[in-house]
Design a protein around this nucleic acid. Structure first.
Length: 591
RNA sequence: GGGGUCGUAGUUCAGUUUGGUUAGAACGCCGGCCUGUCACGCCGGAGGUCGCGAGUUCGAGUCUCGUCGGCCCCGCCA
């Protein structure tokens, strides 16, 4: 008995190897013990091979095989045999052959797993994450990690071929204002001072451009201490890139090549570039959102002009106070029941709607509690604007425009789901451009950056920075895929005066700018090249690519919704001494 | 910070609406039989703090309150 060396994985043997002596290693997926002959499905990362223990071939090995159980780790040596006629298993890639074992090594035993490895079973997330190593043995999850690897390799090889340098940036950096809540790390060496984990390498990549690196990328973890969602967790991965001497069109073109390579290498899909583009204003007007899912219609129709001065008080009040009335024509949905409409109204309420007016277009009449308030001209004008035909259902939103947009955008998605309008397996890319630079924060009573404070405004609008900042458009661009924002970037400011103007518009005075971003302002003064970049959310992208319903299915060790890790039980308490060393004096009671 | 939903055997669930004898099923697990299975089959068996804590009640898996945890959503996420 010498050392056994693996000769093949569990997914590669077929009839071309008949008669060969091979050694396989892997886990017991299933055993079928007939008392006489014993079958074991041996599993590894690549697949499954059936191995056979026959008492007539080797009685000792056969006896030993009786004790095998789920998830034991084996090395087996034997001969590749063609399966007897009618015994082939078309579900396995190796289904035409089996290994007749004449040597068995038990490399390790296993406790009975807490959940089945061999079938797709709806185990709770906390149990899956507690035993993540077992969960990852299941092919559905494992294959997601394989595709993630392939996607990142495609990106690396594309960017490497395009003269990019992969450069690392610090994880321990400084907290900056604006943006999400930071994860803070106390400094032991500097009492009372804190590092922050990066929300993105934004400033470092810009400084790399000022360093003449010209083209940078990094596949990098970013951290934002905000609440979780199915497509969001506090620690996530970005494909981060930045380029010098390039405008929007150059960057967009290059990125389309990168995304195309990614889709080709992962799901072997050839995308048609260039992707469609739409301005922010058009997206908001037609879809109510800056990340429209353009795989289906149901666009928003503005009825504000048509209904100005109408007899329906709710609409009229909204219009007189500067709000809007918009509607969706749900084609062919006039048959919706009272309950359907109640459900939709309740759904709309989650996004701030105070109600939802509707009209069922019937052959003989417009059936609705509100039809009576409209004049014949108003009805005719609505009919034309909405292209309303008998059998249609009109759903209204009336409020300030931001509320109407959010409500109708969500309603539109919900309708598409209910009506099954979304064709699976389609990938609809869309660039959104010309974002506003700023939006007004009602709580803080000041403007905040829509993208970030380093995004360049259009040069011909520089004057507006001081007079009408809400009108300034930025040179930012987002890439939207099937209604998900998968990437966003911009051309950056490379002129210190412009940067100072933008800070000023954001209410960041010179002193604060100097303190928080002095290093950037300084660097801008030493020959900063024009530059711009973009970052992609890897987790979301792979989620779409694999058809996963949660980001957790494409991350090896994800967090729960409460931002914990059931495997390691992070976050955890630390010794009082560690805190003292960090100059922290917490006032909470120790348990 | 708020809303919703779920928590019963190792796992997935039924039972909760209408409180009432010993809390069931499937898979898994353990033992026995079985030489061509591939979700092998057949026979037998073990396995439960009904998340936790209070309360109502003669009596709580079931009702009430609180609490913990999983998931989904709103806010938040430049």
């Amino acid at each position: 008995m010498g050392v056994l060396r693996r000769t093949h994985n569990c997914n590669e043997l077929n009839e071309t190897a008949l008669g060969q002596e091979v050694t396989l290693m892997g886990w017991v997926l299933r055993r079928r013990d007939h008392g006489g002959v014993i079958f074991i499905d041996l599993r590894d990362r690549w697949g499954i091979t059936q191995v056979v223990f026959n008492p007539e071939v080797n009685p000792d090995v056969h006896t030993k095989a009786h004790q095998l159980r789920s998830e034991w780790v084996l090395a087996i040596k034997g001969k590749v045999e063609k399966r007897p006629g009618e015994m082939e298993n078309p579900k396995l890639k190796t289904g035409t052959i089996e290994i007749l074992v004449d040597e068995l090594r038990i490399l390790n035993t296993s406790e009975t797993p807490p959940f089945p490895i061999d079938e797709e079973c709806d185990v709770s997330d906390s149990l899956r994450l507690q035993y993540r190593y077992l969960d990852l043995r299941r092919p559905e999850v494992a294959n997601n990690l394989v595709m993630r690897h392939q996607a990142l390799q495609a990106v690396r090889s594309y960017l490497n071929a395009s003269q990019f340098l992969e450069i690392e940036t610090p994880m321990l950096t400084r907290s900056t204002p604006e943006g999400a809540r930071d994860y803070l790390v106390p400094s032991r060496v500097n009492a009372g001072k804190f590092y922050a984990l990066p929300q993105s390498p934004q400033l470092f990549k810009q400084i790399l451009m000022m360093s003449g690196m010209d083209r940078y990328y990094q596949i990098v973890k970013c951290f934002r201490d905000e609440d979780l969602r199915a497509d969001r967790q506090p620690e996530f991965t970005q494909i981060d890139m930045e380029l010098s001497f390039m405008g929007e069109d150059d960057i967009i073109h290059l990125v389309e090549g990168m995304i195309s390579a990614l889709f080709k290498e992962t799901i072997d899909l050839t995308l048609s570039a260039p992707f469609a583009r739409m301005t922010y204003d058009e997206a908001m007007r037609r879809f109510g959102t800056d990340r429209p899912d353009t795989r289906f219609g149901l666009e928003l129709i503005d009825l504000s002009d048509v209904l100005k001065g109408c007899g329906f008080k709710v609409f009229n009040t909204v219009l007189e106070s500067g709000g809007v009335v918009k509607a969706i024509n749900a084609k062919g949905c006039a048959g919706f029941s009272r309950k359907d409409l109640d459900d939709l109204t309740e759904y709309a309420g989650r996004f701030g709607a105070r109600g939802m007016a509707w009209i069922k277009i019937k052959e003989e009449e417009w059936q609705s509690p509100i039809t009576k308030f409209f004049s014949e001209q108003e009805i005719a004008a609505m009919q034309q604007a909405l292209d309303a035909q008998p059998g249609d259902l009109i759903l209204f939103g009336a409020d300030k425009s931001s509320t109407v947009h959010q409500v109708l955008a969500e309603l539109r998605l919900e309708l598409a789901r209910r009506l099954n309008l979304i064709e699976e397996g389609t990938y609809d890319f869309l660039w959104i451009t010309d974002f506003p630079m700023f939006e007004y924060d009602e709580d803080a009573k000041r403007y905040t950056a829509v993208h970030h404070p380093f995004t360049a405004p259009y040069e011909d609008q520089l004057d507006l920075l001081e007079t009408a900042p809400e009108q300034v458009k930025s040179r930012a661009y987002d890439l939207v895929l099937n209604g998900n924002e998968i990437g966003g970037g911009s051309i950056r400011i490379h002129n210190p005066e412009v940067q100072e103007k933008v800070f000023k518009a954001l209410g960041i005075d010179q002193e604060e700018a100097e303190e928080k971003f002095g290093f950037l302002l300084q660097a801008l003064k030493f020959g900063a090249p024009p530059h711009g970049g973009i970052a992609f959310g890897v987790d979301r992208l792979i989620m779409i690519l694999t058809g996963s319903s949660s980001i957790r299915d494409v991350i090896a060790f994800p967090k729960t919704q409460k931002a914990t890790c059931p495997l390691t039980e992070a976050p955890a308490s630390v010794a009082r001494k560690q805190l003292t060393e960090l100059h922290l004096r917490p006032d909470w009671k120790e348990k």
